[in-house]
Design a protein around this nucleic acid. Structure first.
Lengths: 73, 73
DNA sequence: TGACTTTTAAGGGATATTCCCTTAAAATAT
DNA sequence: ATATTTTAAGGGAATATCCCTTAAAAGTCA
């Protein structure tokens, strides 16, 4: 479901547990997200976009442009 | 909370009820979103970004660039 | 100003979803 | 092959969602 997030994580050689630690959630919860079993909360997408240096729009497949606009705040 | 969405809606002279109709949800639910009483689901942000011709990043204040990323699909 | 209309928000509850736990399965390494 | 690491399934208590009714606020206009 969230193939793009999975691929970006693997590209960076990160495990689901490492992602979960960064996000401060359980590994199984993160797995549920990647699989699409659970909806990824906005706050989580926000942190993932920062980590991967991309946009939420890219993460959720609204665009194919990976580079984000200038980050605010 | 979601001041930006509220402002963009008002700029377009739309009521919460009109937004709710477009999103196919109840007006009170939409109000809950704008106020920040409920989290806005991704699917809803997606439709609002389309309606307002901007990005999810802009709607949720990740960037100040209002123009959308090139739309995929 | 006051009555009327329109718009927005509060309270509350049935239902749906979330998150994490345990543990199993799958993948990888030794 | 077996041990280790990584990922996913099942399930349940806790939480959040969505909408209903209705109240409050804002706008209209005689």
């Amino acid at each position: 479901m969230y193939e793009r997030i999975r691929n970006m994580r693997e590209d960076r050689d990160m495990t689901q547990s490492q992602m979960a630690e960064y996000l401060r959630i359980h590994q199984t919860t993160y797995s549920d997200y990647e699989i699409g079993k659970l909806n990824i909360p906005l706050q989580v997408l926000d942190k993932i976009a920062d980590l991967f240096e991309t946009s939420i729009d890219y993460l959720v497949n609204r665009t194919n442009v990976e580079i984000p606009y200038p980050r605010k705040k």
